[in-house]
């Protein structure tokens, strides 16, 4: 299977420091890649780099989209791809929609630009898209403003906007984080349904393993600006290879295990990107290091081999 998107050894550097270093992943048509990590782990930075949306940042490495290298591509070439062949939806649909324009105008805007559609055709298309994402009476609502919609409906509008030009790649950056739990499930269902119908490749960025469990085919877990584990979803949940992944799974309240005991938390806090820890970036919080106090964890950064970046593979399970 040829990859739609192939990211190799991505590195994103801001004036303040390197946010992402050594990230590689692929996205395939009709499949979902889940990227999981805490705030500041570099998951959003990586996806914004794919979209070419970083300003004032140095992006290095390789991002090949459908056979075309995007690192170093001209701004006009990136503009032509953005919104037409690759789209993105964001965390907070209210602040991500312009408060002064109707949802119809905002959905139609990208379509008019990329499909060179007339105003009227673009409006019809917007109505169609609203219907597709399950907004009741779309013909009436197309003239409403974002503040007149509920949170879940707004995220549907965002999805309609992202899909208006039938993109091949959809990046969803925490699409359910700002929503109620019941609405979250509906939005995930919608994304899944759209993926099945249109065969788009989805990159689902989230800090919520529950979301990943629901939609992802494979999972990449990131920590401190780099991947620590990358494996098929089932494997990650069943036999996590990295102590950080293990920690994340243990920190989820589970009814099915009959629980009742206190939740397991990962001690400490995420590393600073300005002064990352020497050696393995996770070692100050790592139970293996605490138990074995292995010298190598504090001095040498583990290589990413066979989907895992750990000096003690297998010790976590």
């Amino acid at each position: 299977m040829t990859a739609l998107l192939q990211v190799t050894d991505l590195r994103v550097t801001f004036a303040a420091g390197t946010a992402v270093d050594g990230v590689s992943f692929t996205a395939h048509q009709g499949r979902t890649l889940g990227i999981v990590g805490e705030s500041g782990s570099g998951k959003s930075v990586s996806s914004l780099a794919v979209m070419g949306l970083h300003r004032n940042a140095i992006v290095e490495g390789s991002i090949v989209f459908d056979g075309e290298e995007l690192v170093g591509a001209s701004p006009s070439r990136l503009r032509a791809l953005r919104g037409s062949r690759m789209s993105m939806i964001f965390q907070d649909p209210l602040s991500s929609l312009h408060p002064y324009y109707t949802v119809g105008e905002q959905i139609a805007e990208g379509y008019r630009l990329h499909a060179k559609a007339s105003r009227r055709a673009a409006r019809e298309r917007a109505v169609e898209m609203l219907a597709d994402v399950g907004i009741p009476s779309p013909r009436a609502r197309v003239a409403d403003y974002p503040h007149q919609f509920s949170g879940g409906m707004r995220q549907r509008v965002m999805i309609a906007m992202a899909l208006v030009c039938e993109p091949d790649l959809l990046i969803a950056d925490e699409p359910t984080t700002a929503l109620d739990v019941t609405i979250q499930a509906q939005i995930l269902e919608l994304i899944k349904k759209i993926q099945e119908e249109r065969g788009v490749a989805v990159i689902m960025i989230t800090h919520d393993l529950g979301v990943v469990a629901r939609v992802a085919d494979e999972v990449m877990v990131m920590y401190g600006g780099a991947p620590v584990e990358h494996a098929p979803a089932r494997q990650v949940f069943k036999t996590p290879g990295h102590p950080y992944t293990r920690g994340l799974l243990d920190s989820i309240p589970r009814h099915d295990l009959g629980g009742g005991g206190p939740l397991q938390a990962i001690p400490g806090s995420p590393p600073s990107l300005l002064t990352p820890p020497q050696g393995c970036r996770f070692h100050p919080r790592c139970p293996i290091y605490a138990r074995a106090s292995a010298e190598i964890c504090a001095t040498e950064r583990p290589a990413f081999i066979a989907g895992l970046a750990c000096h003690y593979p297998g010790a976590a399970t």
């Binding site: 979209m51 949306l53 990136l78 503009r79 032509a80 791809l81 953005r82 919104g83 037409s84 789209s87 993105m88 964001f90 907070d92 602040s95 991500s96 929609l97 312009h98 408060p99 805007e109 990208g110 630009l113 990329h114 965002m158 906007m161 992202a162």
Partner: peptide, 13 residues
């Protein structure tokens, strides 16, 4: 604002 990022993500000039 996030909606400016959205506008850029649409591929607008």
């Amino acid at each position: 604002q996030p909606y400016i990022r959205t506008a850029r993500a649409k591929g607008l000039h």
